[in-house]
Design a protein around this nucleic acid. Structure first.
Length: 235
DNA sequence: CCAGACGTTGTT
DNA sequence: GTCTGG
DNA sequence: CCAGACGTTGTT
DNA sequence: GTCTGG
């Protein structure tokens, strides 16, 4: 799963064949975004531009704002194994691929009955691209269309299985050299791309356990800084 | 056949 | 709109 | 889709 | 085996 990530894009490279001049500074940037807050964050839904969309896809057939909130709390992620057959995802999966711009993401390691947060990020200075899907929904209260997205997840690779050691899932990461193909291929090609292994691409370090409490303001630099846990006593 | 769900796996 | 559960 | 019925209309 | 109800 992937329920929180960071977006610090300044100075990060974007694949040149996506024809995007730079990671736009006008986008909302931050160290820690919680999916259940449904933040508006930058995605690429069309080659040549970035835009803002809301995290938690809302399918077209949703009728009310109340239903929209309910469903979007359950569509932060979409499992690649079943995405094609889920009513909430199938249409977007076939027609609306997108890339989500990030700098890293968070997972919790269960260790000694505690939950320890880790920050996972690319070894180089690239923008991290999650593979995702988007949808447009007409908001009847505000009388306007809004765009929303889901991050696709897959089985954890060995690095991620050590960190996310309970559910053993991870976000689908699209390597830069396959980004254009992700956007332009059909869903069968995208399914093949989802098998790509990002094993040597990522690294991780433990971060401050203050991330465990939503009462803390986690959207600060400490959220992604390396944290050395106190030495555990052996007795 | 119809009513009800539609989703993932939290740190709630 | 489409799928699932009963 | 699966579990359960699957029948008619007494004068018992 | 096939229909019906849920």
């Amino acid at each position: 799963m992937c329920f929180s990530y960071s977006v610090n894009l300044q100075g990060k490279t974007i694949p040149t064949d996506l024809n995007i001049s730079s990671a736009n500074n006008s986008h909302q940037l931050g160290f820690f975004f919680n999916g259940f807050d449904h933040p508006n964050l930058p995605i690429i839904s069309k080659i040549g531009e970035t835009e803002i969309a809301q995290w938690g896809i809302i399918p077209k057939w949703i009728k009310s704002n109340h239903e929209a909130v309910e469903i979007s709390n359950k569509t932060l992620n979409a499992r690649i194994e079943s995405i094609e057959n889920k009513p909430s995802f199938s249409e977007a999966w076939k027609n609306n691929p997108c890339l989500i711009l990030a700098s890293g993401f968070f997972e919790w390691q269960h260790r000694n009955n505690n939950k320890n947060p880790f920050y996972i990020f690319p070894k180089n200075n690239e923008v991290l691209l999650f593979g995702g899907i988007f949808s447009d929904w007409f908001d009847p209260i505000n009388s306007k269309w809004m765009r929303s997205y889901s991050i696709i997840t897959k089985e954890a690779n060995s690095l991620m299985a050590e960190i996310h050691n309970t559910k053993k899932r991870m976000p689908l990461i699209i390597p830069h050299h396959l980004a254009k193909e992700w956007m332009l291929g059909d869903y069968k090609q995208r399914f093949l791309l989802s098998k790509e292994n990002s094993e040597n691409y990522l690294t991780a370090h433990e971060v401050d356990p203050r991330l465990n409490s939503p009462k803390n303001n986690r959207n600060e630099a400490w959220a992604i800084q390396k944290y050395i846990p106190p030495q555990t006593t052996l007795f």
